[in-house]
Design a protein around this nucleic acid. Structure first.
Lengths: 110, 110
DNA sequence: ATATAATACTATACGCCGTATAATATTATT
DNA sequence: AATAATATTATACGGCGTATAGTATTATAT
């Protein structure tokens, strides 16, 4: 997927994944990868940003003798998903315009 | 609209507007503004990029005693819109995931 | 036993692109 | 005479996805 198109989508995607329960970096990478290509160097900064924005909290738990960082979505984070969905209405309006313009263009060739 | 969400959308939007006929900077700004907020400092670089990519061509015509730059979409540009629409399928898949995850989350509170 | 893969996270430098701000110049309107 | 509308360009900034690379532990395969 084109890098430009990921912008704004990624954070909402990560937050949505956390809705079904706390998770950690490595697992999140696998889960996000099922939806779009992602590298560690993209995901971890996203997690840092979401934490700084109070949209998720971080805590450590021991796992196989090591500390693993778990990420939990906050109420703030849930509200952020709603904001995203609302913003997306505008995006979809533009997309619909492009689609319509393209369809009309095709018709002029008939 | 959030700046991140415009990325990738803007170029396709401008190209789509040119499908119905050649246009010029000032008019394009008005037309794009109807779909999303845009400033000159965003649009003109977009036009330069599209020109560099061979997706539009530029020519000058006199208008009210002054030269005005007109922009015309190329076949390359039309193909780019199609590429955009195809890429957008991936974007929509992620959006649908977020929407579904949010709906499920709401259900757990019922 | 040891090499390899999987797990788990961090750091740095780069490049794209939307934005604010500002400058320039002409024509139309009040 | 002043102001708004028309029309375009330049510069510096900041957000963020990416490539690349480094570090460290545990499980699996040969």
């Amino acid at each position: 997927m084109d890098a430009q198109m990921k912008r704004g989508l990624l954070e909402a995607c990560v937050l949505s994944l956390l809705l079904k329960g706390d998770s950690y970096g490595y697992l999140l990478i696998q889960e996000v990868s099922a939806l779009m290509p992602i590298s560690e160097s993209t995901l971890y900064p996203v997690l840092r940003r979401l934490e700084a924005a109070g949209q998720l909290t971080v805590y450590s738990r021991e796992h196989n003798g090591r500390l693993r960082k778990y990420y939990a979505i906050t109420e703030n984070g849930k509200a952020q998903i709603q904001s995203f969905l609302k913003e997306w209405e505008d995006v979809n309006r533009v997309y619909t315009f492009i689609l319509t313009a393209t369809t009309k263009e095709e018709n002029t060739h008939e």
